[in-house]
Amino acid sequence: MTAPLLQVDDLHVRFPIAGGGLLGGRRTLYAVNGISFDLAKGECLSIVGESGCGKSTTALSILGLQEATEGSIRYRGQPFSGAGGPGRMQRARAVQMVFQDPYASLNPRQTVRTSLSAPLRLHGIKSASEISDRIEAMLADVGLTPEQADRYPHEFSGGQRQRIGIARALILEPEIVVLDEPVSALDVSIRAQIINLLLDLQEKRGLSYLMISHDLSVVEHMSDRVLVMFAGQVVEEGGWRQIFETPAHPYTRRLIAAIPDPDVALRRSERSERSADLPMLDGRAFVADGSVAPDVFVRPAPSELVEFAPGHKVRLAAAH
């Protein structure tokens, strides 16, 4: 096994929020409560969960757009966050992001060429011919033609814009790409094309993906490993087979059961009702089964992520 490219250890993010009322004090919003994971080279790790579970905040912390309250993020063994971390330029060459909304993610007043050449120039590539070569190669890689470089975003369809967004994320040749719901705003037929493109690029360039998604069919299709988040915590972690074939945590099972899937709806394929055997459960309760909405203003009760099969972990209430 290769050493992890990115190591996130006990990440916490809390936001102070002005309380209600005129004299209301400050309350604390517990967004992310102790997330730890490794991301290996060439791997696709997905974080799934519903809105407000902290998956986007986790991603923003890794990108350096959100300061972590506690915990550490290491890239190739070196600190990647906080005061000892790299500058924004070094970070930019390590981690990039593909955004959800292809309509808001491109500057309407910049041509594709400007959007792609400015980062190159910023990162010290001055030769006009090299810039132009790299842009053309990049556009070809995402399935666009060189002639399209001089057009403005509004001249492209949603799927093409997402291709431009991917090109911009890859132009600095980062090792890690954060995919924030990369296909959920797209039509079914376009979605398939973008998923295929992302998988092709990953193979070709050995990219590591950290995908944020609520769409479990896409997650199953693309991921190597999956983290299921609820209320700022990982409630289950495992390989894609473990999560989708033998889900252990009740919340994971609820999520999978909720996917509207034509095959399941028509009972043409029975969804696996099997769940993982948990020999060490010992009457300990699952934490946060998702049946009650979490109170984000309360520090979560102590609990631990227990590994019960190789690589397959589930969150249980703390042992007494």
């Binding site: 990108l63 350096g64 757009l65 924004r88 330029m89 970070r91 930019a92 060459r93 981690v95 990039q96 992001m97 955004f99 959800q100 909304d101 808001a104 993610s105 491109l106 500057n107 910049q110 959007s115 400015a118 980062p119 910023l122 990162h123 967004g165 911009r168 994320a169 600095l172």
Partner: peptide, 21 residues
Amino acid sequence: QGYVQAAQTLGYGDLRIMFTQ
């Protein structure tokens, strides 16, 4: 907007983001 966040992740400084994006 996504493109401003994208500029941040690409390593643009604050002033450059304000003036170009």
